[in-house]
Computed example of a mutant assay.
Amino acid sequence: MAAFRKRSKNPPFLSQEFLIHNHADIVSCLVVLVLIGLMFEVTAKTAFMFISPQNNVSTTTADGDVVYYLYGSCDFVTILFYICITIIFHAVVQEYGLDKLNKRLHLSKIKHGKLNESGQLIVLHLTSAIWASVIIVTEGYVTNPSCLWEKYPHTDLSFQVKFFYLCHLAYWTHSLPELYFQRVRKEEIVRQLQYIGLYLLHIAGAYLLNLTRLGVVLLLLQSVAELLFHVARLFYFINENQQKFFSAWAVIFVVTRLMTLTLAVLVVGFGLSRVEHQIFDIERGIFNTLPIRLGILATVCTTQAWMMWRFINFQLRRWREFRAEQAARRKITGVVAARGRVIRREPGHHENGLIKSENGASPRARKTKSP
């Protein structure tokens, strides 16, 4: 009689397994509580702080009243709320997209984790590239490139620029607890922390130092390069013969690094050195002194050099693997060709031109029958 299958038991309430499996549902409940708070007058003001960017300032212009936004301590509350929103979206993409794709591909555990990482980052960088492109066009960065450094400090932000930065900070901050929720392997944690830390450093630096215009342009360049890389890796997992996207990504990556360095030197090194305010004033948001500019350039250049070093190592490793694969194929082809040229011999072994039987004696010559 066949034994009955054991049913999987639900993990204990508030245990580690419970939090990992249900963290998105728990966060969804918190988001619903905030949204319910909007329905009551007593809690509406507090709930609104979580949802909408704060520190707004109204300015009267010829076209009417225009609302701009500054950064402040209330941004932490808004970022916390959108961390919860990001966790929910992360779980939706994972469950309804990536998990189904993993079931079809039957990948190894290592490739399974990399496919999940690439799938999530494709959604992020595609959204970021489109959003940054819209900001660059609507804010007039294309028609007037000098606005990247003119009228510094850029403390007055439009709604979409501030919301863009808050969403990016929320996403990369949410990536830290996701290392625990996704059960990332210990070998990958250091690499992931470097990746997340660099994004948080550069995005928060551009936001706090009032270099938001330059930051949007650089994030667009970075998002395009990262998007192409993760698309190439996704196609590689689906079909290992699809490696053309890696070649296209290699070109875009190098061009992006050069454009990033050029823009950083142009805006920070030359542009900010010619603007009116050359002082350090936290209250007015001015951080335009020579040591700060040198620190910004050193950070950007060091990061770009580190990324190029990793890129060169990656390309060298791919080249070595390709050469080893080609050598193995040639060896197998040579062995198969050599086997095809083997001549069939009579039983026994040859010695000094004579055929020897298995026991070493010469075979007896057959007698010819008389006609």
Score class of each variant (00 low, 15 high):
F314L: 03
T289S: 02
S73N: 15
E276N: 11
A170Q: 03
T78D: 05
T138K: 15
F40R: 06
R5K: 12
K244I: 11
T302R: 07
Y195A: 09
A132R: 09
L211Q: 10
D99F: 04
Y171G: 03
V66E: 04
F280T: 02
I136F: 01
R317D: 11
V31N: 06
F311R: 04
E139F: 04
F253M: 11
A361G: 03
Y236Q: 05
A305S: 09
R274W: 01
F89N: 09
H106N: 14
W172M: 00
R183M: 11
M1N: 11
Y152C: 02
Y171L: 09
G119N: 00
I85N: 14
T256A: 15
K369Q: 13
V267N: 02
K367E: 11
G269Y: 04
N288P: 00
A132I: 06
Q160C: 14
V300G: 05
T173G: 08
A365Q: 12
N288F: 00
A338I: 01
R364K: 15
T289A: 01
L221V: 14
N144T: 15
E240D: 13
C84T: 07
G334I: 10
D156G: 02
V123P: 00
V190F: 08
V184L: 03
I136A: 04
W319I: 01
K162Y: 13
N116E: 13
Q326C: 00
Y71D: 08
H112L: 05
T333N: 09
A24T: 01
T46V: 13
A232L: 04
V34T: 07
